[in-house]
Amino acid sequence: MTRRWLDAPLLTIEHLTMRFGGLTAVNDVSFTVGRGDITALIGPNGAGKTTLFNCITGFYKPLQGRLALAREGVAPVQDVDALTRSGSRHKDGLYLLERMPDFEITRDAHVARTFQNIRLFSGMTVLENLVVAQHNVLMRASGLSLLGLIGWPRFHAAEQRAIDKARFWLDKIGLTDRADDPAGALPYGAQRRLEIARAMCTDPVLLCLDEPAAGLNPRESAELNDLLLSIRAEQGTSILLIEHDMSVVMKISDHVVVLDYGRLIADGTPDEIRHDPRVIAAYLGVEDADEAAGVLA
C-alpha cells in the first residue's frame, strides 16, 4: 500500500498543542493528511479529536504548532519555512492555518467542516442552507450584494448556478423532495447528510467530519460510506473524519491516526492500527489484547 500521506501531504500538522486552563487537550501532535486520502482520526472520548478539528478550522487558536496546507502539489519544506518566517498567512496556494481566522480558513484555504452536534440553520429551508454555504461566490457575483440590489443580471446567473449546485447535492444526498422544508424538521440522519452537503458547497479541498456516523442506523451508515467514497472519487476532496465505528474506519479509510489523552499514539494504515498493541490497550482501556482485537476486527 502506498503511503500517500507521506508522499503527497495536503495538510501537515506539526507539534500542535492546545491547552484549556490546566488541561492539555492536544499535546504536541504531528501528522500529515494525504491528498486524496480518507484519513480517520480515532481515539476514546475526550482524547482531543474535536479540539484538534477546532484548531485546524480556526475555531480555537492553538498554543503552539504549525498547520501548513498546500492547495495543490507538494509544498517544499523550505517554502513552508520561508512563509513561516515571513509572518504572513499564505502565499501561492500555501496556507498557515494557525494564523488565519476561522472563516478565512474555509473561504481561502478551502477547508470545510461539520460539527459533532449538528449545526444546521434550522429555521431556514434545506435549499437555503445550501445556498448560504455559497455565500462568498455569490457575494462576488452580486458586487457585495450592492449590484444585486438593482437586479444585476450577472448575479441572477450566479444565483441560478448556486441553485443548480444545491440541486446537485440534494440529489446526491436524496433530499430533493425536501428542499423547501426547514432543515430543523428533517430526521436526524438526513440532517447529518445535509450538513455534509452544505460543507461541500464551499468547494473544499479538505473536508473535516466530526463523527458523521454517530446516531445513524446501519443502513444510513452504509449510505454515508458510499457518499464519502463518491465525494472523494468525484470531487477529489480529501476527507478527515472522526469516527468511532471501527468497521467504517476499516472499510473506507486509507490512513488512521489515533489520539489518546491528547497525544498521538499511532499513525498508519488501518491494518497496522488494528494490530498495534498500544492502540488496543489505550483505545479500549483493556489489558486483554485478544478481547480488544475482537472488537477492533
Partner: peptide
Amino acid sequence: RLRRLPVGRAWEALREDEIACRSLGINT
C-alpha cells in the same frame, strides 16, 4: 430585496447559528 441577496441570507444564517456561518467562510 436584501433578504434574497447573499448578505441578507447571511444575516439570517447568523441569527440561526453564528458558528456554522463561520465554518462556511462567512465573515461574521
